[in-house]
């Protein structure tokens, strides 16, 4: 698999570290923290994921990947 890093260009996945679902955002309230830490959707289809270009630019990027086909739909900076 290859990821089009917005900083480095198209690179092999071996250079990246996978983190997981990029959808949850760190909540402001204590009550929402449990869901943020533990609850994840098991997505079949396009999914926004955090990948870290550890052996490249050291940027965290948000990759939209179809979990059924591994097609990479987009890769962008998180902010």
């Amino acid at each position: 698999m290859r990821i089009p890093c917005p900083f480095c260009g198209n690179r092999d996945t071996q250079e990246f570290v996978y983190r997981g679902d990029a959808s949850p955002t760190r909540p402001d309230t204590d009550e929402a923290m449990h869901d943020y830490v533990y609850l994840r959707d098991n997505v079949a289809g396009p999914m926004r994921e955090h990948w870290y270009h550890a052996q490249g630019c050291r940027n965290w990027i948000v990759v939209t990947r179809d979990t059924r086909t591994h097609e990479i739909i987009s890769a962008e900076f998180p902010r």
């Binding site: 983190r19 900076f77 902010r79």
Partner: peptide
Amino acid sequence: IMQHIDFARQVLWP
């Protein structure tokens, strides 16, 4: 930890 710090400053609190 380097990865964790980068996550904190790039994703959590850019």
